[in-house]
Write a protein that binds this DNA or RNA. Sequence first.
DNA 1: CTGTGTGCAAACACTTTGCAGGTGT
DNA 2: ACACCTGCAAAGTGTTTGCACACAG
Lengths: 141, 141
Amino acid sequence: MPIPDHSALLKEHRLRSTQNSRAVLRLFTSAQRALSHGELSASLAPDVDRGTLYRILHRFESHGLVHRVPDDEVSVKFALCQHCSPQTHEDQHLHFKCQVCGHTHCLAQQSIPEISLPGGYQGQQTEVLLRGICPRCQVAD
Amino acid sequence: MPIPDHSALLKEHRLRSTQNSRAVLRLFTSAQRALSHGELSASLAPDVDRGTLYRILHRFESHGLVHRVPDDEVSVKFALCQHCSPQTHEDQHLHFKCQVCGHTHCLAQQSIPEISLPGGYQGQQTEVLLRGICPRCQVAD
DNA sequence: CTGTGTGCAAACACTTTGCAGGTGT
DNA sequence: ACACCTGCAAAGTGTTTGCACACAG
């Protein structure tokens, strides 16, 4: 994969290319996993204000650059959208959360199965969260 | 379904049957959906202390009476375990979150599909969150 | 009686927001 | 120039915890 042009990616999504937004985007592309506000903030502090970081994340989300990943912990996580253009927002997500290291990865390759719903329920989007142990943490056993 | 004997259910799970714990359990069984601390607290206030309610939820969770439901909002939700005994904790969950009313329901009838993981990943549990519109909110359209 | 559960209150963590000033286009 | 973005700081909301007392078994 070529080194992503963060500035161009931001512009594609109708976002301004600022020092902060590029820094946040850089963390997402290098981490390749879902990150919480706290994780991002720890990497960026004290350069980026907490409140500003929340606004950046919301902005990224509303412009289709990242999506929100439900988490069973206190805070929510965000992950870079992989197959979403600003126009066609991919709505099927598959995530793997390692019970050892706590990291959540997007598994873009796996396909999401069809699930039949009871009468009356109208499905729009399927989100799958697999829990288990990631390759790195199995080695550590 | 017979009226659940909350007191007995608590004892099965090695929990004491107190006024508070019965009240919380009553809310879960009557709501039949995932509830957040805030929702429970609103129904119980000012009878049950906030901190106590958090402890009750954690106690219920660790004793296999409720499970934690990942949510994409600020706070976490909890739902009554349906097919879990204190011994055999059922680890497959399917949830439906309505985008209109925001309620999350457990769909116990639907089966969880098998998902093949990339090499190195060891799966332990699958959680599925379907988003869409629930029967009640479709009628309201 | 003994261990568990509770209320109160303080502390901590997470998130949102108003405003004045700075920056990208 | 203008709209957008940022830092600061305050406030709002969610969560945890210590302690003394109350209650269930």
